[in-house]
C-alpha cells in the first residue's frame, strides 16, 4: 500500500508526497479514498492560505467531500465492514462538550474537520475515521455521488433551518455548487417556485437546467425591480447586497438562511423590514444529522447529482482541480479521483 497525498505548503504551492498509511485506532476504519469533491473553501485555502482565523501554518492536505471503500478496521469494529463503500462525514466532534450533549454537534468547538488547519483532509489515498462517520453507500450510488453527500448536506441543512415546506417560493442567491445543491434539495422537499440569482449567465443557465423556475442576473437587473415575494431565502453567495436584497424579497414571517460566507466580519441587515415582517434570520455552520437522509434522497433519485459534476482530475492533478472553477465559472463541481 502506498499513500500519495496532495499537500498544500503555501498559496499556489501544492506538492505530491508520499505519506505513511494511517492505522485505524479503536472504533476506526481505514478508508481508501475513491472520490473527493473540490469545495470553495479548498480553493480559498489554496489561493490565500487562510479562511478567517483558520490559517495554514504547516503543510496541509485539503479535501473534505469524500467517499471511498473500507479496507481495514480497528479494534471493536465488525470485520464485515471491510469492502463496504462509504461516504465520509468529515467533521469529528468531541462528543463531550455542551454543544455535542445538546444535539448540536456541528457547533462543537473542538471539532476536527478534514482539510481545515491543522487537520489533514482527503486529497490522498488513505484516511482513518471513526466508524460511525463512515456511511454505507447503496450499490446504485457512484463513488462521486458519495463524495457529494457532503455539500448536499450543506444544502439540506440550510433547507431544514429554513423549515422549508411544500409549495414554498424559495429565493436562492448565488448559483454556485452550494446554491444549486440547495436548489435540488428545495425541489425534493416540494418547493414549487424557485428564483435563483447570480452574476454569471453560465451559472444561471445551469440553475434553469436543474429546475429553477426563474433566474435573475443581478448584474443587469436589481432584484428589487423583479418583485420577488419569497417564503424562504437561502443566501449562498456571501455577497452583502445579495443578503440585503434577498431579505427585502421575503414575505411576512419569511425565513432567511445565510449560508454563503461573507468576506467581512459584519454586514448590514434591513432591520426595520425584518422587525415589521417578523422575519427569522439565521446562519448555518456545516450540518448535523443529515448524511443518512441525504444518501436516501440521492439513492431514491429524488436528487440527481450527476449534472453537477463538471470535471475529473487525478490526485497528481489536484492543483488543476483547485484552479478549475476560477478559470471557468461554468465549472460547478470538480472531482479528484485518487488511484
Amino acid at each position: 500500500m502506498k499513500n500519495q497525498a496532495a499537500v498544500l505548503y503555501a498559496p499556489h504551492d501544492v506538492r505530491i508526497e508520499e505519506r505513511p498509511v494511517p492505522k485505524p485506532g479503536p472504533k476506526e476504519v481505514l478508508i481508501e479514498i475513491k472520490a473527493v469533491g473540490v469545495c470553495g473553501s479548498d480553493v480559498h485555502y489554496y489561493e490565500h492560505g487562510r479562511i478567517g482565523s483558520y490559517v495554514v501554518r504547516q503543510p496541509l492536505i485539503l479535501g473534505h467531500e469524500a467517499s471511498g471503500i473500507i479496507v481495514d478496521v480497528g479494534e471493536g469494529v465488525n470485520k464485515g465492514r471491510v469492502g463496504e463503500r462509504v461516504a465520509i462525514e468529515p467533521g469529528i466532534p468531541d462528543g463531550v462538550c455542551e454543544q455535542c450533549r445538546s444535539g448540536r454537534y456541528n457547533l462543537c468547538p473542538n471539532v476536527r474537520f478534514f482539510g481545515t488547519p491543522p487537520i489533514d483532509g482527503a486529497f490522498t489515498n488513505y484516511v482513518t475515521i471513526p466508524e460511525n462517520f463512515a456511511y454505507k453507500l447503496p450499490d446504485q450510488m457512484s463513488d462521486e455521488e458519495g463524495a457529494l453527500i457532503e455539500p448536499l448536506s450543506v444544502g439540506l441543512w440550510a433547507c431544514r433551518k429554513a423549515m422549508l415546506r411544500g409549495a414554498d417560493h424559495v429565493l436562492i442567491t448565488g448559483a454556485g455548487p452550494v446554491g444549486v445543491l440547495a436548489l435540488k434539495v428545495a425541489l425534493a422537499l416540494g418547493a414549487t417556485q424557485i428564483t435563483m440569482t447570480d452574476v454569471s449567465p453560465q451559472r444561471l443557465e445551469m440553475g434553469r437546467k436543474l429546475g429553477a423556475t426563474r433566474t435573475v442576473n443581478v448584474a443587469e437587473t436589481p432584484l428589487a425591480n423583479v418583485g420577488v415575494e419569497a417564503d424562504v431565502l437561502i443566501e449562498c453567495s456571501g455577497n452583502q447586497k445579495a443578503l440585503m436584497d434577498g431579505i427585502r424579497s421575503l414575505r411576512p414571517a419569511g425565513k432567511a438562511v445565510a449560508v454563503g460566507m461573507s468576506p467581512g466580519e459584519e454586514v448590514s441587515v434591513p432591520m426595520s423590514f425584518l422587525q415589521n415582517r417578523e422575519i427569522t434570520l439565521t446562519g448555518t455552520f456545516r450540518y448535523a444529522n443529515t448524511y443518512a437522509d441525504a444518501i436516501a434522497l440521492v439513492a431514491t433519485i429524488r436528487i440527481d447529482l450527476k449534472p453537477i459534476i463538471t470535471g475529473h482530475y487525478t490526485l497528481e492533478e489536484t492543483e488543476q482541480a483547485l484552479q478549475a472553477t476560477k478559470n471557468d465559472p461554468a465549472n460547478i463541481k470538480s472531482i479528484v479521483v485518487p488511484k
Binding site: R101, G103, E131, N132, Y135, A288, N289, Y291, A292, D293
Partner: peptide, 16 residues
C-alpha cells in the same frame, strides 16, 4: 451521570 448509552451508528443515532 446520564445513564443512557447509545451506539452512535444506527439510523436513529445518526438522525439525532
Amino acid at each position: 451521570i446520564e445513564p443512557n448509552l447509545y451506539c452512535g451508528y444506527c439510523e436513529f443515532c445518526r438522525t439525532g
